[in-house]
């Protein structure tokens, strides 16, 4: 294919193109010029990829001034295709009346589909931009409330994205 999208047949080549050499030098010029172009690779441990708000990283629970938004309705646990979420409800004196006494996500099972975020009526469980998840044991991979809770300020970008695009 030529630069204008037309197919070039062998009989259409001129004498220089048939003689290989000039075309080879054109190719060499292209590859050599690529050497000095900027690199796409991140030098990972030093430079880290910062995902956009639309990125679906690990799910987190949102809290406002220390109280989680979650009302322990159990919809996320119900919709989770990998059965990764476990919620146990309990009563509270606050206006919302219910809160999760136990909220666990098994990060080995989680497939980052984002169904929990979609189904949540309180915008309490949302996907964050964290993607570095390394565990050395099965127990360590089960995230409890203390590791899941993030403040609304921390999750501002994602919350704004959800409000604009959902």
């Amino acid at each position: 294919m030529g630069s204008n999208g037309k197919i070039i047949r062998k009989k259409d080549l001129n004498i220089w193109q048939k003689a290989y050499l000039t075309e080879i030098f054109k190719g060499l010029r292209l590859t050599i010029s690529q050497i000095f172009k900027p690199k796409f690779t991140y030098l990972y441990p030093e430079v880290r990829f910062k995902p956009q708000p639309s990125f679906r990283g690990r799910p987190v629970l949102v809290h406002e001034n220390g109280t989680e938004r979650c009302v322990a309705c159990g919809l996320c646990s119900r919709v989770c295709p990998a059965l990764a979420i476990e919620v146990q409800a309990s009563e509270t004196e606050l206006e919302k009346e219910r809160y999760p006494i136990k909220f666990e996500i098994n990060m080995v099972r989680c497939i980052f589909c984002g169904f929990c975020e979609e189904v949540c009526p309180e915008e309490a469980i949302i996907m964050s931009n964290e993607y570095e998840l390394v565990f050395t044991s099965q127990e360590e991979a089960i995230f409890g409330k203390e590791r899941l809770l993030k403040s609304t300020e921390e999750m501002k970008d994602r919350l704004e994205f959800l409000r604009a695009h959902r």
């Binding site: 690529q34 050497i35 172009k37 690199k39 796409f40 690779t41």
Partner: peptide, 13 residues
């Protein structure tokens, strides 16, 4: 290294 540079990678570093 050079093959990596030509493909906009960094190569062994």
């Amino acid at each position: 290294r050079i093959s990596a540079f030509m493909q906009n990678r960094t190569g062994p570093n």
